[in-house]
């Protein structure tokens, strides 16, 4: 069953709907996310299950995987990010165009998980800002779907001016991203 898209509030007449730009853009963005799967380990296999026939991420308008960061708007980090991989992840994030969202899937991406070791980055939020965290080691496909739905909620309700706001620029600056 695919997701039902709610009708927007606004002034409606025959053949037209007048609503605020924010709402229209939010709706469009929400239902056409292009995720970039940054799958490194075990969670990546569960992501494959999420994409495959049984769970089918395509039902939520996020079917088109974009392997190029330039054309993606959702970065899904799945799996352990080691310190060797950290700079690569950051570079991928920096290459993505605004607006962009980040989903940290699994315990490793969130906090380093059971790998409290010298070689593992203890959570990707040390190098890039994260919007939604999905717990689990690895999370079930339903959980990953739930994470994507949470992202969709953020996307729909985000103000169109957020990416230019001083708060957002400050957030990026705190990660040293220009």
């Amino acid at each position: 069953m695919s997701q039902k898209v709610e009708k927007l509030d606004g002034f409606e007449g025959p053949g037209f709907l007048a609503t605020s730009l924010d709402k229209a853009v939010g709706l469009a963005r929400k239902n056409s996310l292009w995720p970039l799967p940054f799958a490194t380990s075990c969670c990546g296999i569960e992501f494959m299950a999420t994409m495959a026939s049984t769970y089918d991420l395509g039902r939520f308008g996020a079917e088109r995987l974009s392997f190029s960061p330039r054309q993606a708007d959702l970065l899904m980090v799945m799996g352990t990010i080691s310190k060797k991989m950290g700079p690569v992840l950051r570079q991928v994030y920096e290459q993505m165009a605004e607006p962009k969202w980040v989903l940290a899937v699994g315990a490793c991406a969130t906090t380093g998980g059971i790998f409290d070791t010298y070689s593992v980055l203890q959570g990707i939020d040390r190098i890039i800002p994260v919007d939604v965290y999905v717990p689990g080691c690895p999370p079930r496909p339903e959980q990953i779907l739930d994470g994507v739905l949470k992202i969709q909620e953020l996307v729909q309700n985000e103000s169109r001016r957020r990416r230019e706001s001083p708060e957002y620029l400050e957030l990026l600056a705190s990660y040293g991203i220009e």
């Binding site: 490194t40 380990s41 075990c42 990010i81 991989m85 059971i114 070791t117 010298y118 070689s119 593992v120």
Partner: peptide, 24 residues
């Protein structure tokens, strides 16, 4: 790129707790 130090980790864990490392 995803070196997670399994062998080092195993030296610090009781025998029964090594199973989760082998999983991954």
């Amino acid at each position: 790129y995803i070196h997670r130090a399994f062998e080092k980790l195993a030296e610090r864990r009781p025998f029964s707790q090594i199973t989760p490392i082998t999983d991954r």
